[in-house]
């Protein structure tokens, strides 16, 4: 009897202190959710999600006010990561990546007003006052801000076509032996 009580007490004390130590040393300081989410977002502040920048988008995501699919440049990959971090099972099978686009300035319409240049968050547009502007395709993330601001409708958003360097094999299409139904 005494032995049983004693051993139980020892076990209880040991486990209790283990838990206590664990609680102290493995404690999570604060919820780093917003910060983590912001890390996962591209950080190019394009505003295509409808929030001012990635920071604000992260806040909205953390509050559950925005869907994980909000980030257009990030596409499915970012959506998956966000869903994982938020611990939710997002069904992304139906989600299609928005096709990446880039801005092109029609030189015959550009009046060199600099408005697009001032809007561009990645400095992808080069030009000087009264000079025709051009877009550095590699730096453009397709946010369409210049498209929306151009007074002469000289900016158009074009699809980025697959080229020989980017092309890769598609996933095999399973031709199952299923014949009927």
């Amino acid at each position: 009897m005494l032995l049983a009580v004693g051993s139980l007490a020892v076990i209880g004390a040991t486990l209790g202190s283990v838990l206590g130590i664990a609680a102290r040393y493995l404690a999570v300081e604060s919820d780093p959710l917003e910060k983590d989410l912001q890390e996962l977002l591209p950080g190019s502040q394009c505003g295509q999600c409808g929030y001012v920048g990635c920071g604000q988008a992260a806040v909205a995501l953390a509050k559950g006010e925005a869907p994980v699919t909000l980030c257009i440049p990030g596409g499915k990959a970012v959506a998956e990561k966000l869903a994982k971090r938020l611990g939710m099972a997002a069904d992304l099978s139906g989600h299609k990546d928005a096709e990446p686009v880039y801005a092109v300035i029609d030189e015959s319409k550009c009046i060199g007003c600099l408005r697009c240049l001032n809007e561009c968050s990645t400095d992808a547009i080069i030009g000087a006052p009264k000079q025709i502007h051009t877009v550095l395709v590699d730096n453009c993330h397709g946010c369409s801000k210049c498209y929306n601001t151009c007074p002469t409708l000289a900016v158009s958003m074009n699809k980025i076509n697959v080229n020989l360097n980017d092309w890769h094999w598609q996933k095999p299409k399973l031709r199952t032996k299923r014949t009927k139904h």
């Binding site: 950080g43 502040q45 730096n139």
Partner: peptide, 17 residues
């Protein structure tokens, strides 16, 4: 490639800001 581009754009954005 996308990731590298995003990183570069991030740098550009930060530079601009």
């Amino acid at each position: 490639r996308d990731h590298r581009k995003q990183e570069r754009l991030k740098g550009l954005v930060e530079g601009r800001m």
